[in-house]
Simulated assay, not measured.
Amino acid sequence: MMGRDVLRGVVGLVLVLSAGAACAQANQAPHLLVVQKGDASLGIVDLMAGKVVAAVPEGGITGHEVIASKDGKLAYVPIYGNSGVGKPGTDGHELVVIDLASQRVVGHVDFGHPVRPHMPLIGPRDGLLYVTTELEKSVTLIDPKTLKIVGSIPTSQEQSHMLALSHDGRRGYTANVGPGTVSVLDIKARKTLLVIPISGNTQRISITPNDKWVFTADQTKPQLAAIDTATNKVEKWVPLEGVAYGTTPTLDGRWLMVTMPGKSKVAVVDLKTMQVVRSVDTPADPQEILMRPDGKVAYVSCVGSHKIAEVDLGTWTVTRTIEDGANSDGLAWAGK
């Protein structure tokens, strides 16, 4: 018969191993990332628990947007500064790399001078990190393995704030806020192909899964510009209930979700008819939308209310809200 002390030791070892396995599983589990601008930190959201479980300091002035590495282990946060686009304030000059398991900054990319780096994306073909660098009127290319700058693409416009990349890796599109234009970029040749006028002011940008349509929001009227990528012209205007901000297509390419901060709503556009077919009420000030990788749920950062709304795409209802940090904005998915 096993002695009592031996039995206690075996039980203790099992508990330790179980706790270690649970911890490893938690580190490997998918997480929602949110940039908490008011706190100068990156929030890590445990979706099972429905709450922010960690806030990683970015090191001073804040970032606005984030992207995760393909393996879900790292987050890349360009440090934009404490101002809005086109407004006076600090001018960021670096990007920080955050290890999500240890929850700390483990790397930096210094651009060498102020550039206000903003929107990061991972290239679908080359795996490079693409970051808008506003003050240079460019998109900067970074090798995520070495954290070295390997090139840049001029946008030929001020305030190139947001970026969309085609899924075939051939084209890039920047929303140039103050000029109210969209720059079309040749990724391979690293040059601007043309600049498309939109309005007096524009915001955010997205591209459909089939690379046919690019959308950006007119900030002077309640409408969206729909750019046909075959002609690089605004072929349609989508009327809305209120002035739009962020746009994101569903992964099946059937719908386009559009935030309307002034209305505290998300409009849903049928991409076949280019008409709004419904709207979803959200907490105050919805801004950015992120699709869950399974395509069944969307997450909406609601900046003014310090919440993230979880939207069920089957019922088009907000199923829950998650409290996050001050002035939270950019969203990204870490894991599969």
Rank of each mutant, 00 (worst) to 15 (best):
Val106Phe: 13
Gly63Lys: 01
Met48Asp: 11
His118Thr: 14
Pro124Val: 09
Lys87Cys: 02
Asp99Tyr: 11
Pro120Leu: 02
Ser102Pro: 01
Val85Ile: 13
Ala49Arg: 14
Ala49His: 07
Ile122Ala: 01
Gly92Ile: 03
Asp110Ala: 08
Lys73Glu: 12
Pro120Asp: 07
Thr140Lys: 05
Thr90Lys: 10
Thr133His: 04
Tyr130Pro: 02
Thr90Asp: 07
Val97Arg: 02
Gly92Phe: 03
Lys51Ser: 14
Glu65Trp: 14
Val97Cys: 00
Leu121Thr: 14
Ile122Ser: 06
Lys73Ser: 13
Ser138Met: 05
Arg116Lys: 12
Ser83His: 15
Gly86Lys: 05
Glu65Ser: 11
Ala55Gly: 08
Ile79Thr: 11
Thr140Ala: 05
Lys51Asp: 12
Gly127Lys: 07
Thr132Gly: 04
Leu135Val: 11
Asp91Met: 08
Thr140Cys: 03
Leu129Gly: 06
Leu121Arg: 12
Val109Ala: 00
Gly60Val: 01
Pro120His: 11
Thr132Pro: 06
Leu74Arg: 13
Thr140Asn: 02
Ile79Ser: 02
Leu121Trp: 15
Ala55Cys: 05
Ser69Tyr: 05
Glu136Lys: 05
Thr90Tyr: 08
Gly123Leu: 13
Lys73Leu: 12
Val56Ile: 05
Ser69Ala: 15
Arg125Cys: 03
Pro124Cys: 08
Gln103Phe: 07
Tyr76Ala: 00
Gly92His: 05
Val105Asn: 00
Thr90Gln: 06
Val53Ser: 13
Ser138Glu: 12
Gly123Ala: 11
Ala54Asn: 09
Val77Cys: 01
Pro78Ile: 04
Ala68Trp: 14
Thr132Val: 14
Tyr130Phe: 14
Lys73Asp: 07
Pro57Thr: 09
Val109Ser: 00
His64Val: 15
Leu121Val: 15
Arg104Glu: 13
Val115Tyr: 03
Gly107Glu: 11
Lys73Arg: 10
Gly63Val: 02
Val131Ala: 03
Gly127Ala: 08
Lys51Thr: 15
Val56Leu: 03
Ala101Phe: 15
Gly86Ser: 07
Val77Tyr: 02
Gln103Ser: 05
Thr62Trp: 11
Pro88Asn: 04
Pro114Phe: 09
His113Thr: 13
Thr132His: 11
Pro57Gly: 04
Ile67Phe: 15
Val109His: 00
Ile122Pro: 05
Ala75Cys: 01
Ile98Thr: 04
Met48Leu: 11
Ile61Lys: 00
Val105Ser: 00
Asp99Met: 10
Gly84Arg: 08
Gly60His: 01
Gly81Phe: 01
Ala49Val: 07
His108Tyr: 13
Asp91Asn: 13
Arg104His: 13
Asp110Gly: 00
Glu134Thr: 10
Glu134Ser: 03
Leu129Cys: 07
Lys137Gln: 15
Pro78Ser: 06
Ala55Asn: 08
Leu47Gly: 00
Ile98Leu: 07
His113Cys: 02
Ala101Cys: 10
